Amino acid sequence: MKIKESDGTIIKVFAIYWFGNETYFYGLPKNYGGLLAYRASQVSIIDPEISFNAIYFENNAKSIQHWALIKEKLLDDILERDDVAYNRFVEILKAEGQIEPDFY
């Protein structure tokens, strides 16, 4: 899945979650070092296809997450921009062909 920011930047999405009446995406922008939340009403969806193995997850919000975020317990650390968790997630995404080999 891909979204586009108002400045034209294209971001690959690896989680979708619903909090209250809002839909959010967790995207992986280059050179950020973690996942970043995007409000659906503030971006354009340019590719709606989810092309990764996903898991439904529920805590304080309901979500569809890339499997590694949940099974490898990377989500919280990546949101906190932990380098070890981020590097592990990038390694998995590269191995799956989800991101380019030169992403990071």
Rank of each mutant, 00 (worst) to 15 (best):
G33A: 03
E22C: 14
A54D: 09
I64F: 10
S63V: 07
S51I: 12
I92V: 15
I55H: 09
T23N: 08
S44N: 08
A54L: 10
N21M: 14
D47C: 11
I92L: 10
F52M: 01
A37P: 09
D7E: 10
G33C: 02
S51H: 13
E100K: 09
R39Y: 07
T23A: 10
I46T: 10
K30F: 01
D82A: 04
V13T: 04
L79R: 07
F57A: 13
I78P: 01
K71L: 13
S51P: 08
I92C: 10
K4N: 03
L35N: 06
L74G: 07
A68W: 03
L79K: 07
L36W: 11
Y56E: 13
F19G: 14
F14L: 03
A15D: 05
L36H: 11
Y24M: 07
T9V: 11
V13F: 03
K30H: 03
R81S: 06
D82Q: 06
F25R: 13
K4D: 02
Y104H: 14
K62F: 11
L74Y: 03
D7F: 12
R81T: 06
I78M: 04
G8K: 01
A15S: 12
F89Y: 00
L74I: 03
K4W: 00
A61G: 09
I92A: 09
A68T: 04
Y24N: 07
D77I: 01
N60Y: 11
E22Q: 14
I45A: 06
V84P: 09
E49D: 13
W18E: 15
K73V: 15
D76K: 14
K12D: 00
S51M: 13
S41Y: 04
G33N: 02
K4S: 05
L74C: 06
A95K: 15
I45E: 08
L35I: 04
K73P: 14
F103R: 02
N53A: 11
F52I: 00
E80I: 04
Y86M: 02
E80F: 06
G20E: 08
L79F: 02
N59A: 13
D83K: 14
N53Q: 11
K73W: 12
G34S: 06
L74S: 07
E91C: 00
I70E: 10
N59Y: 13
K71D: 15
Y56W: 12
K30V: 01
I46N: 10
Y26D: 03
F19L: 15
V13Y: 00
F89V: 01
T23L: 09
A61M: 12
P29Q: 03
